[in-house]
């Protein structure tokens, strides 16, 4: 989604190449689309996503890896995009909240967050959704401890954790096909 108006790679550019004295050219597969862009080496992945790529769904709240609001998936694993350089995503696959589900559909975790009111102000929500969705990719039947571990680095001042827990359990049940999940 929201990819149409930006540069989409036509050729396969596996490594950083061009760039300027100050910048390097990167090729990152973002939400399934190869994106080529220039970035300074000091640019964090969060800054590149939000700035250069216009994907503002990823939030920066502490900018030090202490709140996990900026969580994205790198090759399927949740990482803090504020504590990773964009250049370290070069050649990797990044999934952001915008790319978690197709534009017209929602990921079961997103649906469950809505149904169980697992959000309030919503600023930490994209990161929490990414962490819970990543958990369910690897663990179809998580118990409370597994969910607590997955979200243990997140900080939500509104206090959505109890509803995040119920929503994630419900999403897992739904993804497994349990009837009364």
């Amino acid at each position: 989604m929201a990819e149409a108006n930006t540069a989409v790679s036509e050729q396969n550019v596996p490594f950083a190449g061009a760039g300027t004295a100050e910048t390097v050219q990167l090729m990152v597969t973002v939400n399934g689309v190869d994106r080529i862009f220039d970035a300074e080496p000091r640019t964090t992945l969060a800054e590149a996503l939000r700035g250069t790529l216009g994907l503002t769904g990823t939030k920066i709240a502490c900018d030090r890896g202490s709140c996990c609001a900026c969580t994205v998936l790198r090759d399927g694993l949740p990482v803090c995009s504020c504590m990773m350089l964009a250049i370290e995503a070069n050649g990797h696959s990044i999934t952001t909240i915008e790319g978690l589900a197709a534009p017209t559909a929602l990921h079961p975790v997103q649906t469950a967050f809505i149904e169980h009111d697992a959000l309030q102000c919503g600023f930490c929500t994209p990161g929490l959704v990414m962490s819970c969705a990543a958990l369910l990719e690897h663990n179809a039947n998580p118990d409370q401890e597994a969910i607590l571990d997955a979200i243990s680095g997140h900080f939500c001042r509104c206090g959505t954790y109890p509803h995040v827990m119920t929503a994630t359990l419900a999403a897992a049940a739904k993804m497994r096909g349990d009837d009364n999940g």
Partner: peptide
């Protein structure tokens, strides 16, 4: 009833 801004917030579309 679900929050009127819930869809925007779970998809990252909400503009802060």
């Amino acid at each position: 009833v679900p929050r009127q801004d819930a869809f925007a917030k779970v998809t990252g579309a909400a503009l802060f």
